[in-house]
Design a protein around this nucleic acid. Structure first.
Length: 778
DNA sequence: GATTGTGCCCTTTTT
DNA sequence: GGGCACAATC
């Protein structure tokens, strides 16, 4: 037998060799899940299974790439390359491009990213004269996304009494209608948003039996990684394709389900048993990654969750060091403490910077760490947050490519039709929109049909529009004549974007030029990398090919320089699936982690706790937790309390030394409060004129006792209020609007709002989630 | 129609 | 503290 089965424990070997029939692998953190998956695929190939018939769905493109590389080390690399491996989105976008015609798209359809979708929503709102304050694009998009993930059409959405009731209660009854228009616009633009990729794949497999049959025959073996994070749409795709052979292996860990907010459904794990009664269940419970201390800590935390599949993750590595807890007085000090700590460990233990990662809950927290690391000349790299492809200039250039390939792509068209400025402004664009709507045609169709007789526009505008059309058409004729890089370069040159930026001649514009050059380099590199899998010849890659999954590329996918030595910074979500010897988990404060938005329901809090579990289990050797007693949020200093999650770790596993001690007492004594009574951060007003009288003793540790300048009541007469406590008739203090009287309260939970008549400044409707109100004691 | 100014609201997490 | 949307002004 080959070496593939060596160095596997018993359950792992079972997961690797059970290749026929449905298999569910419940894999605890660090239990060699990736190892099992890669070896399984290698084993299948070695058994003579055609790699093309294997579909392996991963959570990120990076994970797919890494798994491929690992499989290549086990079997003949050429074979490994032929496995269909990638994210749900990239694999099914690929299939949708092949089958686009069946669904009424062309294979050049554009994939809209969240930004495009948001802009489109806002356009629709403006057209319908709907108040964007009452209907935030982000919220609408979230509702639509959840609907699509659950396979609701706009019509289903409007017909569903429960959904309608929810929207009505949230004061947003128009969402269904907006959804309808939004989808119609996407279709008109020959575009899909992220959720459409999964939605439309389901439609394809549901309505076209011959196509379903084709892919059922094709994909005889299906593997799904991170199964706990799949949503209903993904679940059903898998179920449909796997129906013929039922050779399906899903791998997941309910304790690491952290994407509920985007529709992931742990239920999928439970459904597996029902859908495939003859399933084989394999549990990987031995953790090879972390010390006993770390595993015990993680277990003690997750035990607080009610929803979980029982399992026992254990480690037979050494006990390891205790967990260190760092207490900082401010977010900046937290940065410094962490940077010092990293430097200290690196020096005293002969480590490299790449042995360290700093994890946090929100991207905004990276700032203080960047500052501190830079100050100490510690190299670092941030993953996530603003992606290269999110940059304005990059988007503009990509929009040119998008329009050239798919001229009905309205979001891209809108972006570039007047960039660089060519006298086609907002008024003209709106006119175009209206006419296209009337004629039920695309804007591009309208543009190409304009002639001198078109009475809608004046002569000058018509000429400018026609010049633009000619420009785009001239690029279109080159698609098949030039490779991706040549055409991209040609377009950026002839449009004059670089020239425009050069004239601007600021540091900012020079940066932008560099980014555009970097984009062109990426295209060049992409073209060079594409090699025919059979002949080994280099394939000439055209621009449409490059653009195919640009929208699906994320920063996480960029290759790591193996030799580079830097500290890694990222959100915990981004850290999923990764491991580092030294892990710092920062910002362990109430209202930050767990986040304020997760406190209202048990389910949300439990997801937050799973997130903490994921963070803890990234560590191999040593965990360092930190929190700050105050931090800048929304430009104000906010005081905060240590996270309840710290308490949930078995206290015997934490060392309290140095600044880490809670002022020499135990955590319990320090915090003595009921976790569900009036918790909350104390926010100082922007001008620092008041503080909460509640626990003012601790508040004044970091802040001078401020003087009030309010005439009727002094600051100490106010007590910070939780949203639940606000009632009609109360006198309240707002950090900006001053004093007022509550006249109306509506909404529930995080959506609770209050209408307040302010003494100066009139009536305001405030989201209590954000407006930090204090109540006048009476 | 473009550019600059001002106020407002905001911070989860991501394919 | 910052980004975005709308307003004012040239």
């Amino acid at each position: 037998m080959s070496g593939i089965l060596e160095h596997l424990n018993e359950p792992q070997r079972e997961a690797v060799t059970t290749i026929e029939g449905p298999v569910m692998v419940i894999a605890g953190a660090g239990s060699g899940k990736t190892r099992a998956l890669t070896h399984r695929i290698a084993y299948m190939i070695e058994q003579g299974i055609n790699p093309f018939s294997i579909m392996a769905l991963t959570f990120t493109n990076k994970a797919a790439k890494e798994m491929k590389e690992r499989i290549m080390q086990l079997v003949e690399p050429g074979a490994a390359r032929n496995v269909w491996m990638g994210t749900f989105h990239s694999i099914f976008a690929r299939i949708l491009r092949i089958e686009a015609a069946s669904l009424g798209y062309t294979s050049e359809f554009t994939i809209y990213d969240t930004d495009d979708s948001k802009t489109l929503i806002n356009t629709i709102l403006k057209e319908r004269e709907i108040d964007t304050k009452a209907y935030p694009a982000k919220y609408i998009l979230h509702r639509i996304s959840m609907a699509k993930s659950a396979l609701y059409t706009p019509e289903d959405y409007c017909d569903n009494a429960e959904i309608q009731e929810q929207d009505r209660r949230a004061n947003k009854p128009l969402i269904g209608e907006i959804f309808k228009t939004y989808n119609a616009r996407l279709k008109r633009a020959n575009a899909m948003d992220f959720d459409d990729i999964l939605f439309n794949t389901n439609v394809l497999l549901r309505d076209f039996p011959d196509i379903l049959y084709k892919y059922q025959c094709h994909f005889q073996y299906i593997l799904v990684d991170e199964y706990q994070d799949t949503n209903y749409a993904q679940y059903l795709i898998i179920k449909r394709i796997a129906a013929m052979h039922e050779n399906i292996c899903v791998v997941g860990d309910d304790a690491q389900s952290i994407y509920g907010f985007r529709g992931a459904n742990i239920q999928n794990i439970l459904n597996f048993k029902i859908d495939y009664p003859e399933q084989k269940l394999i549990r990987l419970e031995q953790n090879y990654r972390s010390t006993k201390t770390i595993v015990k800590a993680a277990n003690s935390v997750i035990a607080n969750n009610k929803d979980q599949i029982k399992k026992t993750v254990w480690s037979d590595k050494e006990e390891g060091e205790l967990i260190t807890l760092l207490r900082a007085t401010s977010d900046n000090e937290e940065g410094t403490l962490v940077a010092n700590s990293i430097f200290g460990y690196k020096m005293s233990r002969q480590l490299e910077y790449k042995d360290f990662a700093i994890l946090y809950r929100t991207n905004a927290q990276s700032r203080s760490f960047e500052q501190a690391l830079r100050k100490q000349d510690i190299p670092y790299k941030i993953y996530g947050g603003f992606s290269f492809y999110d940059r304005e200039e990059v988007k503009n250039v990509l929009s040119y490519f998008r329009v050239v390939i798919n001229p009905t792509d309205e979001q891209a068209l809108k972006r570039i039709i007047n960039y660089p400025a060519r006298g086609i402004g907002d008024t003209t664009w709106r006119k175009l929109q209206v006419i296209a709507d009337q004629r039920k045609c695309t804007i591009w169709a309208l543009l190409t049909s304009l002639n001198e007789q078109s009475s809608e526009f004046n002569m000058g505008t018509i000429n400018r529009l026609r010049d633009f059309v000619t420009l785009i058409q001239s690029f279109q004729t080159l698609i098949n004549k030039m490779n991706a890089f040549e055409l991209a370069k040609h377009i950026t040159d002839s449009v004059g974007i670089i020239k425009l930026l050069k004239e601007e001649d600021t540091i900012e514009s020079q940066n932008r030029i560099q980014n555009i050059e970097e984009l062109l380099n990426a295209i060049s590199e992409f073209s060079d990398k594409q090699v025919d899998e059979v002949t080994g010849e280099q394939i000439n890659i055209d621009l449409p090919k490059f653009m195919e999954d640009v929208a699906l590329i994320t920063d996480q996918d960029q290759k790591d320089d193996e030799n580079a030595d830097y500290v890694t910074l990222m959100t915990i979500h981004n850290a999923k699936g990764l491991e580092y010897p030294y892990i710092y988990i920062a910002g362990l404060e109430e209202n930050l982690f767990p986040g304020i938005q997760s406190l209202s329901t048990r389910e949300d809090l439990e997801e937050e706790r799973r997130l903490f579990y994921v963070a803890l289990t990234r560590a191999q050797t040593k965990l360092i937790l930190s929190y700050a007693e105050s931090r800048y949020r929304w430009g104000n200093i906010t005081l905060s309390e240590p996270s309840r999650f710290i308490e949930e770790i078995d206290p015997n596993l934490i060392e309290r030394t140095r600044k880490a001690s809670f002022r020499g007492t135990t955590i319990k004594e320090d915090r003595g409060y009921n976790p569900f009574s009036g918790r909350g951060a104390w926010t100082f007003s922007g001008d620092k004129r008041y503080e909460s009288s509640q626990r003012s003793q601790s508040a004044s540790r970091t802040q001078e006792a401020p003087k009030t300048s309010y005439p009727k009541a002094s600051a100490s007469d106010f007590v910070f209020a939780d949203a639940d406590e606000i009632q009609v008739g109360m006198r309240v203090l707002h950090q900006k609007f001053g004093q007022g009287t509550v006249v109306k309260v509506e909404g529930v939970g995080p959506n609770k709002k209050a209408s307040v008549d302010f003494d100066e400044g009139g009536n305001k409707m405030l989201m209590l989630k954000f407006a930090k109100l204090s109540i006048l004691k009476q």
